[in-house]
Amino acid sequence: MFSRLIHRGVTSLIVLTGVLLIGFLMLQVIPADPAVAIAGPQGTQEEIDAIRRHLGLDQPVLLQFVWYIERVLSGDMGRSVINNASVSGELLRAAGPTIELLAVAMLWAVPTALGLGILAALRRGGIVDRLVMAVSVMGVSIPVFWVGLLMIQFAARTRAFPVQGRGGPLWTIDGLSHIILPAIALGLILVGPIARMTRTTLSESLYADHVRTARAKGASEARVIIHHALRTALLPIITLIGLQIGTLLGGAVVTETIFSWPGVGRLAVGSIIAGDYPMAQGAIVFLASAFILVNITVDIFNELADPRIGAKT
């Protein structure tokens, strides 16, 4: 098990370096030469050269990349070219709302999907089953932004929920009413795939030998389903939820933009459109690294949850 985890760690480090390289390249393609920009319109060639030497721009690119990694690791990701704000400061401020949105979306979507999947598996061919199958095909085909737009139209007509921005903290009425619409829109992405996977794995495990034994033993139907059948069916579902985190993160970029949610996704889109390269670089490196870290965590959980995975090596 340890050798597998070390293997995973090394792979992730390589990927992380790749992400940093992309971030570094983003800063390299800036159309304006930073030295020229600092020297200003009156800057002479000597001054520009001096600034270049000072910034290390005359050094080999590889060395500059190493410096870049050092800076990122020490938390310095540069400053916005629009408002001179510190990139890492802005990222820290935006990370909270994004995590909040992802957590609330998963909090309602995962139990809903599990419930729908269980109902579908128990009554194969029934109404819930057909509904789950239809919703799961539609769920992966519908543009996330359309779901958001429909919700905004609905909310504006009924004046039920605010449609823009974030309210106070989550435990206040204001905070809760602001997060409901974006969290529903984002969570909907998850419901289809998870419900479908639950339906498939559960309907297989319902006919497994140990489930029949539990029934023969006289356990109640609810106990048989939850304790015996669902438990064995759970592992592929957890793996799927882990795999869906990437999709969820992508969906967050869209939902945040539509609902003006002050998270990292909106920051990334906004700064790219505004041409704020340092900010865009920071947001993208942040999103990608967060994704990689979450993936490793899911892997470790999987490793711990299933003794068979460890036994194989």
Partner: peptide, 19 residues
């Protein structure tokens, strides 16, 4: 495998930022 699980919107963001 890394590419497979990577959010495709992030590809879009990075490329739009670079190009």
């Amino acid at each position: 495998d890394v590419f497979l699980s990577f959010p495709s919107i992030l590809f879009g963001l990075s490329l739009a930022a670079m190009l």
